[in-house]
Design a protein around this nucleic acid. Structure first.
Length: 438
RNA sequence: GGCCCUAUCGUCUAACGGUUAGGACGGGACCUUCUCAAGGUUCAAAUCAGAGUUCGAUUCUCUGUAGGGUCACCA
């Protein structure tokens, strides 16, 4: 690297035509990481150029999501507010002959089943029809012949610039040094380079990152469940976990470390280690990453659990051990609600309803179960004694009836944990109740 | 179809041209206090195919095959 290296300027430029897409999250993240590790500038640019699909609602959603994720930007701009800038560039281009107003037959074209009115007068780039070769940071040398693009349209009129023109002008004006974006724009890069040359802009360094794929290797679309960030937010994924997982999709640190906080990612990230091939989005691994981050934020998560339980059982004091039990059993935050709603810990606060048939362990009889429970009752305060007795009589034969008598559940934490949380008095009551049923 | 990109376990990925092809997720088995969870141990699982270069190809070259992207007066 040279000493007079230019200050890094990168940008994320979403078009606000939908909720923040999971693929855009990664593009935003890579740009953010690259900017932060180079102490550069990260620009947010809303590409809302005269598109009927653009909505304020979507732009707000993207901005809120960025905030939620902790990806801060240093500059904000909207293309819809920059028309006069594009006008001046278009005028210049027409003056110097690199673009011209073309007069065609007015026509209708069909795009994706929709009829489109084509103007008779548009502004086209005068294509020098040459070969464009550029270096891509993740893909190496890319070569395109731009001849087939012809004199493509860059604006519908002086005041109605098209996407490619707006992008190139903005990147030039803001001094973008690196363009990190999805692979889907790789094939329109040569056309953008042609526009750059026409307006006398310096060519930025490109890095086209691979796409995120659905499990069937197709483009990640609505067909595959959740594609927008809000849906993951709602399911109770932590922002740190989403960022961590997205980083791992198409990038690796070169070490075996897999769990990263945002600052650690800034430290470890390197654009050179970004993968070339598309990666399938695997929710199972996302869940695992989320669980790992839940462990990292234990105190905070425990507080959330406490609050949720308090809402359901307002009058109760909540033993920390109950919080631990829930904490161990969740992968996403909504698991907490599910556990509570399913009554998974109801038996800590209310006497459980017991079914006679379920009290005895599968290899044992109700009579034996009754006998074991009666004996356990006499040594209830001494866990070691209970365990010793269980080992002699057959663990399942004793422990299953005991645990079931205490919880009324086929699945629950072990009887000793229950015993210690419920306390000897409540335990005694419940065991006696079970005995009477038998 | 044209152009472009890509190709290692099911998935995410590692491997100066020389490794028993490594790790993680997921799956199986076992251990841990009966069940659930957590934890521990452990097993199975991959270099797309064919040529070439080389003493030696996952790695370099070519061809094929497969997958993806893109071909707007959308962004």
């Amino acid at each position: 690297m040279s000493e007079n290296k230019k200050k890094v300027v990168v940008r994320m430029a979403p078009s606000p035509t939908g909720y923040f897409h999971i693929g855009s999250v990664r593009t935003a993240l890579f740009n953010f990481l690259f900017a932060r590790q180079n102490e550069g500038t990260f620009i947010f640019r809303s590409e809302d150029t005269n598109d009927a699909r653009s909505k304020k609602e979507y732009e707000d959603n993207i901005l809120e999501s960025l905030k939620w994720l902790g990806l801060s930007y240093d500059m904000f701009m909207k293309q819809s507010e920059r028309t006069e800038v594009y006008v001046s560039y278009l005028k210049k281009m027409i003056e110097n002959g690199s673009a011209y107003i073309s007069k065609d037959e007015a026509a209708t074209a069909t795009r994706k089943g929709e009829e489109i009115e084509q103007r008779s007068e548009v502004i086209r780039l005068r294509n020098p029809n040459k070969k464009i070769i550029f270096e891509d940071l993740v893909r190496g040398t890319i070569e395109f012949d731009t001849t087939e693009s012809g004199d493509f349209v860059i604006a519908k009129s002086l005041t109605e610039p098209l996407y490619h023109l707006a992008v190139v002008v903005d990147d030039h004006e803001t001094g973008a040094t690196h363009i990190i974006r999805g692979e889907d724009i790789l094939s329109s890069t040569p056309r953008q380079i042609l526009i750059q040359e026409a307006i006398g802009a310096t060519r930025p360094i490109y890095a086209h990152i691979p796409l995120i794929l659905a499990p069937d290797r197709s483009k990640l679309s609505k067909r595959y469940g959740a594609t927008s960030l809000v849906e993951y937010q709602k399911q109770g994924y932590l922002p740190e976990a989403i960022l961590n997982y997205m980083a791992l999709l198409g990038w690796n640190p070169g070490t075996e470390k897999e769990i990263f906080t945002l600052p650690e990612l800034i430290e470890a990230f390197s654009i050179e280690k970004v993968q070339k091939g598309g990666a399938i989005f695997d929710e199972k691994k996302l869940r695992w990453v989320n669980k790992e981050h839940i462990k990292l934020q234990k105190e905070k998560i425990i507080e959330i659990i406490k609050e949720k339980i308090s809402n359901k059982y307002p009058e109760q004091t909540i033993d920390v051990r109950i919080l631990e039990l829930i904490f161990e059993r969740i992968e996403v935050l909504t698991d907490i609600d599910r556990l509570i709603e399913d009554g998974e810990l109801d038996y800590f606060f209310n006497e459980p309803a017991l079914t006679k048939e379920k009290i005895a362990w599968k290899t044992s009889t109700p009579e034996e179960a009754k006998k074991h429970l009666e004996h356990v009752l006499t040594i209830i305060g001494d866990s070691d004694a209970v365990m010793k007795y269980a080992e002699e009589a057959g663990k399942g034969n004793v422990l299953w009836p005991l645990r079931y008598a205490l919880s009324g559940k086929e699945k629950s934490p072990d009887p000793f944990t229950l015993l210690s949380i419920l306390g000897p008095d409540v335990a005694k009551e419940r065991i006696e109740k079970a005995i009477t049923i038998l």
